[in-house]
Design a protein around this nucleic acid. Structure first.
Lengths: 114, 114
DNA sequence: GATAGCGCTATCCTTCAGGATAGTAATATG
DNA sequence: CATATTACTATCCTGAAGGATAGCGCTATC
């Protein structure tokens, strides 16, 4: 352990932020969970996550893909067929999601009880 | 396990969201980490988290207090003395913060390499 | 009497995530 | 020839988070 400069603090904080960013926003978590049940096509996700808009779904998928948490596979067909699928790296997120859920349940209990 | 209706999905998602909300935003995580080194006064936090504004610091502290993650203690003095301190419930967050950090570090490595 | 110190609150402003709506390419089907 | 289908993109708009700046109550010190 080194001294508590702003820099050493940030070194601890940045990876936490990175993780929070991957999960952040209104849709990424839901998206991930739906994809955890198996690969999905764009329109299928749009239905399952309704009322998400196409624009937003498209952006969120790109963000997850950029973070290598899902893959995008395009098949040569018309109308287009594109499949989204969780990567092993994406799977590894579920351990921490489950920890967040455990804390969240304890939290809810504490807050609710008087 | 029950069927995968929107409702059962949400039941899993909501506590995760609760946890993410407690940590969310630009400052709460930093605030928590600084408080993990010991109780702090308002102006002390303002300096340590500079360039946070008073307005924002005040709101963030209230949010953490409402979530019972910190306590606020007011001493009878002038100029005012107010002390903020992590609760045991707040301490319990650090386990999941550390998990987030671990995933974040692995993530950064994966994304950076090639 | 002016100024400083602490822990705020009030007002105004900017930024940005995400919603609403519409349009596109290329083919198949009626 | 019109229409449907799929996976998007383009444009415009709203609401909410958070920044900038100023002020307040009460006392102590110069």
């Amino acid at each position: 352990m080194s001294v508590r400069t702003k820099e050493t603090c940030n070194k601890h904080i940045i990876p936490v932020r990175d993780a929070l960013e991957v999960l952040g926003g209104r849709w990424k978590l839901q998206l991930l969970i739906h994809l955890s049940f198996g690969p999905r096509r764009f329109s299928q996700l749009a239905k399952e996550l309704s009322p998400i808009t196409d624009r937003t779904l498209s952006r969120e998928l790109k963000s997850l893909e950029a973070n290598k948490v899902i893959t995008r596979t395009e098949y040569d067909a018309f109308p287009p067929v594109v499949e989204y699928k969780i990567t092993p790296h994406g799977e590894s997120l579920f351990a921490v999601i489950s920890e967040l859920g455990n804390w969240g349940r304890a939290h809810r209990k504490l807050i609710m009880d008087k």
